[in-house]
Design a protein around this nucleic acid. Structure first.
Lengths: 167, 167
DNA sequence: CAATAGTGATTGCAAAATGCAAGCACTAGA
DNA sequence: TCTAGTGCTTGCATTTTGCAATCACTATTG
């Protein structure tokens, strides 16, 4: 596949400029979904299996994900590469824009809101945590819960609030 | 068109998650291309006229671009809305990733490199300049050339260097 | 006036991508 | 053996993309 130009934006969108790839990466990063079935059944947008299989293959070919060895019929685990981890600012920027300019559910917006409130250091910490989880990097010392845990807590709190609101 | 979920990332990719929309925005922002023909013939990726027409319409419908009034046969001018200007961090993040992980031409990479070197304040200044050019905001006082002029200068310098290298 | 150049699409067609839902060949456990 | 889980693959219809020609309009020039 020959790139249409040598512009870095074009290069990035040839790999990432389709909505399913971006949503898959979001689920790997924030949902900690590392297996095919989890990604398929966990997709709130309802990705089709052939699209998921295709996108995972593309992301692997592009050096963004790796696939652990598994025999046929056995679960394989997907991991982000360093290049994959560094897509986080893109996903973050998209979510940030969506927060300002699109409607959405408070529950699903809560993670994005927390990241915005926390600032760029949080994004860096999150990338570090992804390096631990996906690349086997040694954990850095930190107090209290890690970024992903905090994001999950924000989501759960928003879900609880939404539940209370409905009563 | 019903959104597939209320997640802000999903909301953003439903509007922006296709490569042509992102490339059109890049050309409006960095190439200062404001008319159909300029976007069509100036596209280094060679966008097709039906795709360009379709994407411009979508971006207008999504509130990212506006189209100046023009009679049939007359040139219309496209302008970024505030929402359109705020896609800059997304485009920037994509280009930044492309700079690190993809091959490309020095000439076409020079703008991205300059933005990275300058840091987040540059992105803010660039958004201010876009507000002046597209929204008629009053210019802020600044010394020397504006961000877009500096980006063009970096591009020209890289082109000159590349030209020298070839001799 | 006719010819030319420019305006932003639109069109016809073939190829490619998407999406739904069923099915496949495999593994593992009861 | 049956059931449940594994990651795809398949058949089919629909949608999107991409190429290149064309359209209906405007404005200018000879």
């Amino acid at each position: 596949m020959e790139p249409r130009s040598g512009c870095p934006v074009n290069a990035a969108v040839e790999v990432l400029g389709d909505r399913w790839s971006l949503l898959v990466l979001r689920d790997v990063i924030f949902g900690d979904r590392r297996h095919f079935r989890a990604l398929l059944t966990g997709s709130i947008e309802g990705i089709a299996s052939n699209i998921l299989a295709d996108r995972l293959k593309r992301l692997i070919d592009a050096g963004i994900l790796t696939r652990g060895t598994a025999a046929r019929g056995q679960r394989a685990r997907f991991s982000l590469t360093e290049a994959g981890i560094q897509t986080l600012p893109i996903i973050y920027a998209l979510g940030n824009w969506g927060l300002d300019w699109c409607q959405g559910s408070a529950e699903l917006r809560s993670r994005q809101q927390l990241m915005r409130d926390e600032g760029p250091a949080f994004i860096e910490e999150l990338m570090d945590e992804l390096r631990v989880r996906h690349l086997g990097a040694p954990p850095k010392p930190h107090d209290g819960p890690g970024p992903l845990e905090r994001l999950d807590a924000a989501y759960a709190a928003a879900a609880e609030e939404e539940h209370v609101d409905r009563r």
